[in-house]
Amino acid sequence: MSAERVVLGKYPSVDALYGAARALQASGHSALDFYSPYPLPGSDEVLKLRRSPVPFVAGAAALVGVVSGVLMQWWMNDVDYAINVANRSVVPSPTWMPVTFELGVLLAGTSIFFGLMALFRFPRPYDPLFEVEAFRSATIDALWLSVAVKAEQVSTVSDELRRLGAAEVELVPEEA
């Protein structure tokens, strides 16, 4: 397995960033990523990202919440310790709606949050990218592009990034 290195290029505008990405993709590099202080419109298409699984996670969790909410109330109030309130109909009781709804929301919300953390593999305070001092601007005001290449291609790709308009090119150090 030949060692992979990551090369970073800083671009002055979104158009230049996307142009560089498309050129790199045309020359066979697909392990690309952008870094920006705010979400870039259209980056999903340029990077050819698959659809995010987050909506399915949220939907499934909401369903689990609702179903378990109904089952919980039914088992606790009608089976395990039946509470007969004025002989009103028991199953399904309209009085279950609030708790069922809240549980659906609670599960959906928490699984979105923790699902995102799992997708990002957070917490991850260390990332090799943070070794590059100039990369700090990625969360402030700069647009960066990263491309993973084989070790022997580093210099050619660096030159190409510059040719494609990079104001600055950095090589990410190997993981210590």
Binding site: P123, R124, P125, Y126, D127, P128, F130, E131, V132, A176
Partner: peptide, 11 residues
């Protein structure tokens, strides 16, 4: 030039 956290910080 070094990162704020060491790689072991992730663990």
């Amino acid at each position: 030039m070094s990162a704020l956290f060491k790689p072991s910080a992730n663990f």
